[in-house]
Computed example of a mutant assay.
Amino acid sequence: MIGPALRERALKAERAGRLSDETIADLDATGAFSIATPKEFGGFELPVTQLAEVITEVSKWDGSCGWVVWVGATTNWIPVGLDKRVIEEVCDQAWVGPRVSGTDHHPGTLGRARRVEDGWIVPGGTVAVCDQLPVDAVHEPRLHQRGKRT
């Protein structure tokens, strides 16, 4: 049971503004990030009621962990409709933590994305980013890998 460890690390994570790698690894080891992943891609494919139960239980110990599990687990279906190469890169890699990135971007203009070592920078507006994507792909039709509008 990792609940007590999540609670013990909660304040440090709050101050750091992120969950520790250890917490992500612990959550991953429980299978929490695979609860909504289709079975054919190695997940548990739980029904919505059970997803809610898992997320609620994690949240009882640390609300931030519950939020990360919710976002990480419920975005794992996104690659299913993409090219086979993307599905393989996302689902077949040994990867600790959430597999898919969720973003919410509401800029005043489209802006320009710029690739950086560990992701993308999208200037302007408000950007909220969760999780990580272990492939060199972006699921946003207005962004091109070189950061130019397409």
Rank of each mutant, 00 (worst) to 15 (best):
A113G: 15
Q132K: 12
D62N: 06
G147R: 08
T75L: 10
R114N: 08
G119E: 06
A52D: 09
I87H: 07
E53H: 06
L27E: 04
R114G: 01
D62K: 01
G17W: 01
R142L: 12
G102K: 04
V90Y: 03
V58Q: 02
T56K: 14
G66N: 08
G43P: 03
H139A: 13
L110Q: 09
G72W: 11
D62C: 03
V71F: 08
S101H: 05
A5I: 08
W67P: 00
D131A: 15
L143C: 07
L11R: 14
H144I: 01
V68Q: 07
P79I: 06
L143W: 14
E140P: 00
H105T: 06
C65R: 00
L11S: 11
A29P: 03
R15N: 02
W120M: 15
F41T: 02
P38N: 05
D83I: 01
V127G: 01
E140F: 13
W67C: 07
Q132I: 02
T23E: 08
S59L: 03
L143N: 05
R142C: 10
T49N: 12
T74F: 02
G63P: 01
L110P: 03
C65Q: 01
G43L: 06
W77G: 06
P123G: 14
V135G: 01
W61A: 13
G125C: 13
D131P: 00
T23Q: 04
G31K: 11
L11N: 06
A94P: 03
H139L: 15
G97Y: 09
E45A: 15
H144A: 09
G63K: 10
R9W: 04
V138M: 11
E45Q: 15
G125Q: 12
A16G: 02
W77Y: 12
C91M: 12
P107R: 00
L51N: 14
S34I: 00
T75M: 14
R142G: 04
G63W: 07
G43C: 06
A10R: 14
E8G: 04
T75D: 08
A128Y: 13
H105L: 11
P79H: 06
D131F: 02
W70C: 07
R146E: 13
R18P: 00
V68F: 01
I121Q: 08
P123V: 11
L133V: 07
D92F: 05
W70N: 02
W77N: 05
S59D: 03
R7L: 09
H106M: 04
W67K: 10
G43Q: 04
V127L: 15
E14A: 12
I55W: 10
H106T: 10
L110N: 05
R114H: 13
E57K: 15
Q132G: 03
G102L: 13
G108F: 03
I24V: 15
D83W: 07
I78W: 00
R85A: 14
E117A: 12
T30W: 03
D131W: 00
R15L: 07
D83L: 04
D92E: 15
T37A: 13
L133W: 04
G31E: 12
G111K: 10
L46A: 12
R142M: 09
A128G: 03
P47R: 10
H105D: 07
A52P: 01
I24P: 00
I87L: 12
F41M: 05
G124S: 08
V96H: 02
E8T: 05
R99P: 02
P98N: 11
G31H: 09
F33I: 11
G119K: 05
Q132C: 05
P107C: 00
